[in-house]
């Protein structure tokens, strides 16, 4: 059952991930990416990471992709007109990708590790929260400052007159 679910959601994620690249219209790409992220969130749930899975749906499939769609519609982007393919870039890009996958397939048999059994049911929101406010308190504060800086920066960048 678990294995079947894994393959279903992995296929969903990779299929719609490929659709992001191959669909010509940016809006279709963005909507495919939403489905791809939902599949990824399901894989997080299979790994008992419920908190991360929910955050993935809320932040990525919700906020980030809405922002993308909003910008695509704001700029009123039409389907790209077909251009001459840049052949050297195409070959170079495919070589890098194929090399990466070949390396992956070569290394993968070293990771034949089964899922360890857990003594207690996971309570991951509490555990992540405890770590976040004890061991990782300083990075947590820095992230808060980063978000503030990003917000101010975005407001500054999107003013009409960029001096």
């Amino acid at each position: 059952m678990e294995v079947a679910l894994f393959w279903i959601f992995a296929a969903l994620m990779l299929g719609f991930g490929a659709a992001v690249i191959f669909l010509k219209s940016p809006v279709s790409s963005a909507l495919s990416l939403v489905v791809s992220f939902l599949g990824l969130a399901a894989l997080f749930l299979l790994l008992d990471a419920f908190f991360i899975g929910i955050i993935q749906v809320l932040v990525y499939a919700g906020a980030v992709m809405v922002l993308f769609l909003f910008i695509i519609m704001l700029l009123d982007l039409k389907t790209e007109r077909a251009r001459k393919l840049n052949i050297p870039a195409l070959i170079g890009g495919l070589m890098v990708v194929v090399g990466f996958i070949a390396l992956l397939v070569k290394l993968l048999p070293d990771f034949h590790i089964a899922k360890p059994a857990l003594a207690r049911p996971v309570n991951d929101v509490a555990s992540v929260g405890m770590l976040l406010f004890s061991d990782y308190n300083l990075p947590f504060q820095i992230i808060g400052v980063l978000l503030l800086v990003a917000t101010v920066g975005v407001v500054l960048l999107s003013r009409k007159e960029l001096k």
């Binding site: 294995v3 894994f6 899922k115």
Partner: peptide, 9 residues
Amino acid sequence: TLTLGHFLL
């Protein structure tokens, strides 16, 4: 069963 390799792949 699921192994680490599945997820890494």
